[in-house]
Write a protein that binds this DNA or RNA. Sequence first.
DNA 1: CTGAAAGCGCTTACAG
DNA 2: CTGAAAGCGCTTACAG
Lengths: 334, 334
Amino acid sequence: MREIAKKAGVSLKTVSRVVNNENNVAPETKEKILKTIDEMHYVPNAAARGLSRGKAMSIGFSLSWPVKTNYSAMLIDATLSVCNKKDYSLALFSWDWTTPSQIINAYLGKQIDGVILDTKASMDEKLINQLNALNAPYVTIHPNSLDQTGEESYVIIDNFKSAKMAVNYLIELGHRSIGCATENKPFSHQEQRIDGYRKALSDAGIPIVNSLIKQSPSDSFQGGFICASKLISENKDLSAIFCVSDELAMGVMNGVWQTGRKIPDDISVIGFDDIQYAEAFTPPLTTVHQPIHLIAETAVNHLIKRINDPTTEQIQTVLPTQLIVRKSCKPFQG
Amino acid sequence: MREIAKKAGVSLKTVSRVVNNENNVAPETKEKILKTIDEMHYVPNAAARGLSRGKAMSIGFSLSWPVKTNYSAMLIDATLSVCNKKDYSLALFSWDWTTPSQIINAYLGKQIDGVILDTKASMDEKLINQLNALNAPYVTIHPNSLDQTGEESYVIIDNFKSAKMAVNYLIELGHRSIGCATENKPFSHQEQRIDGYRKALSDAGIPIVNSLIKQSPSDSFQGGFICASKLISENKDLSAIFCVSDELAMGVMNGVWQTGRKIPDDISVIGFDDIQYAEAFTPPLTTVHQPIHLIAETAVNHLIKRINDPTTEQIQTVLPTQLIVRKSCKPFQG
DNA sequence: CTGAAAGCGCTTACAG
DNA sequence: CTGAAAGCGCTTACAG
C-alpha cells in the first residue's frame, strides 16, 4: 500500500513521516502526500506497525466479575472510553473463562502492552510474580488486600470509611437495630465494609449482635433474598439493613417485599457501589457511590504512562466515595 | 525468538510447523521442539503472524447502546465468550463515541477481519455501502428494519409476535384496560412491539384507545416513571401495563409505586428483553426473554465462517423468544 | 528536508 | 519429512 502511496513521487520514509505527523517535511510534499493518501483511502496496517514498533497499542483488562454484571459493564464502559481517546484498544479477559496464563501469553505475544487487574487477578500470586518477572506494566484496581500489594500501582477506594459513612447515616436517621447483609465472597473489600459497619455501631454505643449480620448463601440475587428473610425473622426490632453491595440490595429488597413489609416505611435499605440501575430500583436506592469512571480513568492513564516510560513512578491512589441519598431510607418511626 | 527456538537444531519453518500443529513433522523432532519452546516460554508474536497471514484474528462489534446498559453487557458477555473459544479477540466500538469511519479504518488497517453491527450501525447506509464496497464480512443484529436489509446476513427475533404473546398473556389474565409504555427511540423493533400490542387487543375484540399508549419523553428510567404517571392518571380502569423494554419497566414500576399502587395487586406490569436484573426487580418481572447468548453465538459463528470462506452463504436467522412468568402480573381482580 | 538499507517475527509458496 | 528464500507493511537508525 505504501508503495502505491509512493507513487506520489516520494520515498517510503517520507510518507511514513506524514502519516505519523513527524516534522521535517516540506509543506508542499506533505500536502501532496496527504492528498494521495486520501484518494487511495490508505490506512496504515496496524499489524505491521505493531511489529516494527514493538508495541501493540492495546491494553488488557482482567475482569473479576462477569461482564454482564452492571458493575463490570460500567468499568468496561469507562475503560473503553479512555482507551479510545488515547488510541489504544482494549482486550477483555473475563476471569470466568480465561486463565492467568492467557494474560501472560497475550503480553508475551505482544497482543497487549500492559494490563489492568481487577480484584481476583490481583490475588493470583503466580500471575503477579510472572508479570513482575517480565517487567510487564500493570495496575491493579481494588486489590484484595493492601497488605499484599508491594510497591505496585493500584487504584482503590476506602471501603472501611465508606461503609461507616453509610451506617452512620442510618444511625442519624434514628435506627438502632440495623442489619448487615454480606456477600458470600471472601474478599477483603467486603470485610472492610463489615468492619465499617461494626465501627459505626460501636462509635454510637450500639451493641453489635450476631443475628444482625447475615452472609449470603449464594452468588445471585437469591442470596440477598434469603439474607433479608433471616434478618427479619430473627430480629423483631429490625428497622434498617446495610447491604455490602447494590446487587445484594436488590435481593434484599425483594426479600423484604416478600414478607409484606414496605421500603422505606417499615425497613430502610442502603446499598454500596451505586451501580447504574440503583436509581431505578423500587424505591430508588440510597447508596454509596464509587467513582467508577474516575477509577478507570486513573488506572488507564497511569498504565499508558508506564508503558511509554517504564521509569514512571508507581501510584497508590485512594479515590473518594460519596453518599447518594435517594428514597430507600427514612427516619426511624419508633 | 524463533531464531532462538531454532537452536533446537532445526529450521525456522519446522518450528513454525509444530507451533501451528501442521502435519509432516517427525515425532521426535516435534517433541524436541515442543520441549525447547516450553523451556524458553516462547509465545508467537501476534503482530507478525497477523502481518504475514493477512488476518487479524479479531472481530469488531459495534454496539448500539451504552456499554453500561445491561442489555449491551449481556451481548458483550456472550460475544466475548464465543470469540474466546474460537481464538478471536473482540474489539468494541460504542456507537456513542466512535464514528463509522473508525470501523472502516479498523477493517482497512487490518485490526479486525469483520464486524458485527447492532441496530444503529445497521441503519447507517454509508457504513453499509462502504462495507459492501470493500467486500468486508459483517453480520447485523436486530437490524432496524428488514426492508432495509438486502441479502446480507442478520440475526433477529420476531418482535411483533413476541409482543403479541406478552399482551395475550395479560388478556388471558382477564385484563382489559392495558397500557403500553414505549421508548422514545425511533427504532422499528419498537414499532413492531407496539403493533403486536395492538394486534393482541384487536384480536381479543378490545378497542385500542390512544390514552393507553404513552411514549417515554426521555432515555432514562425517568421516562418510564412519567409514562406510568400519565397512564394511571388518564385511565381510571388501568389494571396492567405492557412495557416495550425491561429498562422502561423499571421506571414504570417506580412510577406505579410512587402513586401508592402495588404491583401486581393493583397493576400488573410486563416487560420485554429479560435483562439480567429482571428477576431481581421488586417484584421479579414477568417478561419476554430474548435469547441473547444464542443471538451472539449465531452471529459470531457465522461471521467467522464468512471471514474464512467468503463464499459462505448469507444467513437470515429469526430466533425464538419465550414468555418468562415471574411475579409482576396477576389475574384481574374485577 | 529526504532517502536507501535493514529488520521487526512470522508465513507462504516452492524445492528437495 | 525438512529447509532456503522472499515477503507481509511498516519503522528505526543512519546518511546525506
